[in-house]
Design a protein around this nucleic acid. Structure first.
Lengths: 125, 125
DNA sequence: GGAAGTACCTACAAAAATGTTAGTGTGAAA
DNA sequence: TTTCACACTAACATTTTTGTAGGTACTTCC
């Protein structure tokens, strides 16, 4: 029950569908919509940021989660990591073209939430 | 450290900002981007569905998570629950106008992922 | 008569996510 | 000279999320 179902999505035998539990698109969706994934993408839109700078902008994120989520996003091909071999360490993060496209989508969602917050009943409390 | 910071977002003294840890917009964002929240919104777009029907469409979701996430989304004002007092039970779920707007946004994200999956390096494995 | 379907809820258990703390090696500022 | 900043990693602890199993009260299908 593993091979035929899992492989089909890879080589285009089935169309990608997030409603299917084992379609890779579902994994990517969870990465982008993970607790910190979306915020990182939004923070990086059109910018080059260093680790600590990002940490300051995304209130509440821990070093561990920032590092971990950045790695996931880098592995997906959304984030580009550029390290300079100097001391103290200097690392720059930015979005790949693919990442910019994805970031645009969650930005639109978060922007909608921000501007319509007053209409959302559950936003109080 | 609780009052002055927490209250400002409610009455428009500060502009909503997902980057702020205690801004209500952040809570709403996590609801919509929660593991099942987005998929439920997508499944409900333009449709009226019963509990079991949704469960069948969203592969992998458990009854518990479906019920729980629906309650969160209902409390937020995105989902409308209409129960008929008959036996066996009959309950219909649909989106509020607000919910349709939110659903449109995550649909755009998931649709982007589905159509661009072949360009995403991390989609394999 | 027995099984299955309906829309859930409640304990309990397991798994996953997240946080905390400590540490790395060097340089610059106080 | 002490402290801070940098960009992390590893070990451990806690919290949150998610799943499982069982139950409800009744009806329809076989």
């Amino acid at each position: 029950m593993s091979d035929s179902t899992t492989l089909g999505w890879q080589d285009g035998r089935f169309a990608p569908d997030v409603m299917a539990a084992d379609c890779p698109s579902r994994r990517i969706l969870t990465h982008i919509t993970s607790r910190w994934g979306g915020l990182i993408l939004i923070a990086l839109r059109g910018e080059v940021l260093r680790f600590s700078e990002m940490r300051r902008r995304i209130a509440g994120i821990s070093e561990r989660m920032l590092a971990q989520t950045l790695q996931t996003l880098e592995a997906d091909g959304f984030v580009l990591r550029k390290a300079y071999d100097v001391v103290p360490p200097h690392v720059e993060y930015s979005l790949t073209p693919l990442g910019e496209e994805a970031a645009e989508k969650i930005s639109e969602l978060s922007h909608w939430i921000e501007t319509n917050l007053h209409r959302i009943p559950g936003a109080a409390g």
